[in-house]
Structures are given as structure tokens and as C-alpha cells.
Design a protein around this nucleic acid. Sequence first.
DNA 1: CGTGAACTTGAGATTTCTCAAGCGGGGTGG
DNA 2: CCACCCCGCTTGAGAAATCTCAAGTTCACG
Lengths: 238, 238
Amino acid sequence: MVGRFVETLELYGRLSDADREAVAALPGAVRRFEAGEDIVSEGDAPSQCRLLLSGLAFRHKTLRDGRRQIMSFHVPGEICDLEGLLLAMDHSVTALSRADVSFIPHAAMEALLDGHPQVAKALWRTELVENAVAREWMVGMGRRSAYARIAHLFCEMYARLRAIGLVEGARCWFPITQTHLSDALGLSVVHTNRVLQALRGEGLLSFRGGMLTVHDWQGLKAAGEFDASYLHLKADPV
Amino acid sequence: MVGRFVETLELYGRLSDADREAVAALPGAVRRFEAGEDIVSEGDAPSQCRLLLSGLAFRHKTLRDGRRQIMSFHVPGEICDLEGLLLAMDHSVTALSRADVSFIPHAAMEALLDGHPQVAKALWRTELVENAVAREWMVGMGRRSAYARIAHLFCEMYARLRAIGLVEGARCWFPITQTHLSDALGLSVVHTNRVLQALRGEGLLSFRGGMLTVHDWQGLKAAGEFDASYLHLKADPV
DNA sequence: CGTGAACTTGAGATTTCTCAAGCGGGGTGG
DNA sequence: CCACCCCGCTTGAGAAATCTCAAGTTCACG
């Protein structure tokens, strides 16, 4: 059970039929997680790769005093502990919504990567893109206003969800609370709430009940100083 | 000419004699960069890996209006455009000090990785650790005060330089200006300057003329909420 | 001795935070 | 079926951290 995995890989590299078949043949036990459950925890040294089949997840570190920083989001088709192949986890990955996750044994993944260099390349590219995203978040947290940061995050998630076909019309399911948003952007909930109202007030987007609607993509991009090139996707959603 | 490269790899994986020899046999033309020169620029699609032999470098994005965010530092022994093997550069890497850089053709690097899986593993681990560092910076920018952030950065660089033998006594050469520091931490130069004075005033460190001296490692760690585990080094500098 | 970059200081302006409280809907036990 | 409760959202208001602007100092270097 590898769900959207092949499609995600093909966003980042060309695969042969044999490659695709090998990926599809990957073994994996599926487990469902409820929102808020840890998919993998800080300190774990995983022996399987956790592939997100459906739902969203986020990586985060939580400090003793409760301050939390979300460091990235995962969408379906992504492996959320790829680094676990080589290192112990230094942070946790938690389900943002209900999520189905396939557990692929490291041995099977290693065999796939050894036998299929194009798959390995594509997979490492996904990892490199994840870093590129992290760097862009640093730019936001270091140098952009709360207003631009929030707009930028919505742009990013909209573009990523669109790339995997999860945007319909101008709407996508993005079940994030304002608390998560704050923790991802390094803001207080109160401030996040106020800025969000400004974004809505300007007619750029709607965001209620976990549903994001982009009313003015150009305007939102401008507000967020968003340029999709760091996502290394084949096509920018105009 | 691969300088400290083998030692750096051995921080992250066990190599055989054959592995070491293969690494040492890597071809590479050396070029010297002066402080401020771009080693690789945004938009480049490199055909060599740039291995830092001596000196320091930093990755950064600079926005049109001049705001700049530094996203990481590189120390000798590190490849500063490893992602260039698979992706075009979406940011620049600039020499922080005078630096010697070896240019290793991608073909040679790929042959090494194909023929020496342990080297490939160690190299990917360096990449994964770089991400771990990026995530820790996000925690800092999102959730730590300027005071803790600055202390944390000094802790990190001290620990990294120590791991490669570039700390003598409690001193190391870290030729960074307060402007760079600000751009790395998302602060204004003025505020950075004031916080730095506090750190000095408390006797935690000295930092002048590009020389960092740590007077009170435990105190500095506490000030920066620093825990070296995210660096995935074998030994914490006590 | 002149120059420029880096550093330092002062002071007022802003952004963002914290504390505190009220609102609203969904789920649940009585 | 209803009351209650909790979580997430919203609002108000004062506080704190950090920024911006402006200017002066220091030091290395030519």
C-alpha cells in the first residue's frame, strides 16, 4: 500500500515502468492515527519508513516550558521520517488530522533504493526540497512581517496541495488551527488571529472549518512575497 | 585535494581503508575566494561539488529590498552545494572569510558514491544533520528571545568547530560581523549589538576581532538553551 | 592622515506579546 | 433532550521586545 507515493516521486524525477512497479510492490502495514497522535517521536530510531497515505502531519519540537515550534508540514505521498533511515529522530512528527500511514520496513526501502537509482534520486530530491522549504521558512521567520509570513504559508500549502491534486477550484482542505499556525510561524495566537482577519478583510482568502479558499491568488502571492521556485515543482499554479 | 573531508565524513559514519583511499583520490581543482565572494550563486546548476577546505562560508537568500537571511554556516570539510548534485541552487553560498574551495566534478562524486555505499551514507548523513541544524534555527527564530538565540548560535558554532579540531583552549576563530550575526538570527544590528554586550557583561564569552572565547560554557549553554544532540556529533564538548 | 567598515549609543516608534475575558459550536453525560 | 464543558476563536488593553533613524566612535588600512 503506497498510495500517492509514486506520483509524489514523479514530481521530482522520471521513473521507468520497472521503477514504478518496484515502488508499488513495496510492503507496508497501514495504521490509522487520530489528530494529535505522534506518528514518530523524538528519540525514536525507526526501523520502518512512515509514508503518509492520507491526512496531514507536522514536524515539531516542543520545549519543556510548552513553547512549540512546528518546522514543517507533510502532505499525502510523503515519507515523514526519511532521515530515520540514517539517524535517530531529533524531533516528533504528529498527525494534524486523522491520517493513514504505511509502515515500510527499512530493509525493503534500502533494497528499493539500491536496485533503482532513479527512485533513489527522486527520493533524495524530495528530501532536498524539504530542506529548501525549511530555508524559506527561515527567511520568513527572520525577515518577514507576521502578515507576509501567514500569507506565505497559505501560498505554500496551497501550491503543494495543488501539485498533488488536492485543490478543487480554489479550495483545499487544510485542517489547521490558529494555534498550529502560530506555532509554525513563531507568532502568538492572538496576533495570528488579528492578521488572519486582515487577510480575510482584504478578500485574499477565506479560512474556516479547516477549509482554505483562495480568492485572489495574485494578491495573496504579493502579500506573502511568494515565489514558488524554492518548491522545485514542475509547474507553478499560475 | 580533499583536506578535512575524510575526517568530516568519519564524524558521521565508519569508513574502510578502501573508502578513505577513494575519497582521498577524488580529483579537484582548488580556488581561493575572498570574503564576500559568492562560491555558488542562486540559479546556478553546478557541475562540481564545492568542498570547503579552509575558511568559513554561509548560505543566504537576499531579497530585492536588501533584507538578507543567512540560513547556515559551513566549516572546513563540508560540501556547500551538495544539493547541486540533484537540484539547481535556490540560494547563494558566500565566503565569510578568505576560503579555499576544491571543485570536485559531479561525475567523480557520483562514481565515488556508487562504488562506496558507506561514503554515500556518511555524506547523506551530513546532509541530514544540516537539516537538523536548520530545524533548530527555526526553533530559535520562532520561539527564543534574541538573547537565547545569540547564545545558541555561539554554542553551535563552538561545538561544530570543536568537533573538527578548530578550538584551542576555549578560543576559536569565528570571523563574523555583527551584521552577519543579525542576518543569521533575524535581528537588527542595533539589537544584536546590545544583546552581545549583555552576554559579554555576564562573563559568558568574549567576541572581538573575529575571535570567540567561551569563558563559561555551562553558562552559555544555559543562556542559549543549548542541547547539542541535534548536531548528531559523537561527543558533546562537555 | 584620510577613509570606510564595523561597532556603539541614544531615543522614539512599532510590532508583537501577554494577560484577561467573552463567545460559539460540538460532543457528552444526565 | 438539555445543560454543561471544552476547545478554538475573538476582542480589549497595557506591556515588552525589538526596530528604525540618526549620529558618533574606533580601528585597520592605504
